[in-house]
Design a protein around this nucleic acid. Sequence first.
DNA 1: TTCGTCACTTGAATATCACAAGTTACTCTG
DNA 2: CAGAGTAACTTGTGATATTCAAGTGACGAA
Lengths: 128, 128
Amino acid sequence: MTSAENLVKGGHERSSCPIASTLDILGDKWSLILVRDLLTGKQRYNQFCSSPEGVPTNLLAARLRKLEAQGIILKEPYQTRPVRYAYTLTPAGRALLPVLQEMSRWANSYIEGTWTPPEAFMSMKAKV
Amino acid sequence: MTSAENLVKGGHERSSCPIASTLDILGDKWSLILVRDLLTGKQRYNQFCSSPEGVPTNLLAARLRKLEAQGIILKEPYQTRPVRYAYTLTPAGRALLPVLQEMSRWANSYIEGTWTPPEAFMSMKAKV
DNA sequence: TTCGTCACTTGAATATCACAAGTTACTCTG
DNA sequence: CAGAGTAACTTGTGATATTCAAGTGACGAA
């Protein structure tokens, strides 16, 4: 059972369709890229910046803010002096793993030239 | 094995990551809504228009064109006088079913108020 | 004191979006 | 045959979002 504090905060959904609602929250070019990076161990602003897709830094900041507000990621300082932040996935964020795995499977089958993710990623189980 | 004619035509991908490549093709607010409608039996322009999300007609036309160009959907006249068109999914399009199923599962667990899709949809197998 | 790094902001140009209205081709009704 | 209706779009306009480049502030190291 999913308790209330694990729920994502949607804004103004277009409909109650689960697919449409998911897209309202994650349906853009960058959000799921960030979730991918977080699932594969990246935690810091600079690490996201240096992913091969090259997210513009203002969009990165905006997306991180939005995903945090929605309860998909968590921002915490992991040191003071100077203060540095680590971003991590909430249970809701980690639960997106199967979506990304299916996307990978699809791309590997239907888009030429996509690399196959590490076996570790494809066989990973979301521990929520 | 997937033969060449079943492959999707990506434009200029940001990277060879299968997730990023998928998002380059489908990472917007409307494309997967259309795939959902097609998977659930809708075939015509007006039917897409009347989905509860209310896609603007200019975007609908643009997305249909794009998805057709990418090889995810097929546009065929199903009658002449007057000519009327039916849109259907290609094998690549049908293969997106598991992605949508996982999105539904995620939304049902983590977004409050989403309706659960018909059992028929959730247990459907993509016959590619 | 100057340099570099991290984590962002700001600004300007461009692209995309939503909303409303119009168009074309045809059929159907009276 | 005039007028209304429907399907499948297209066009125009203003708002919003995205990209690209550059700048900022806090700190730490040399």
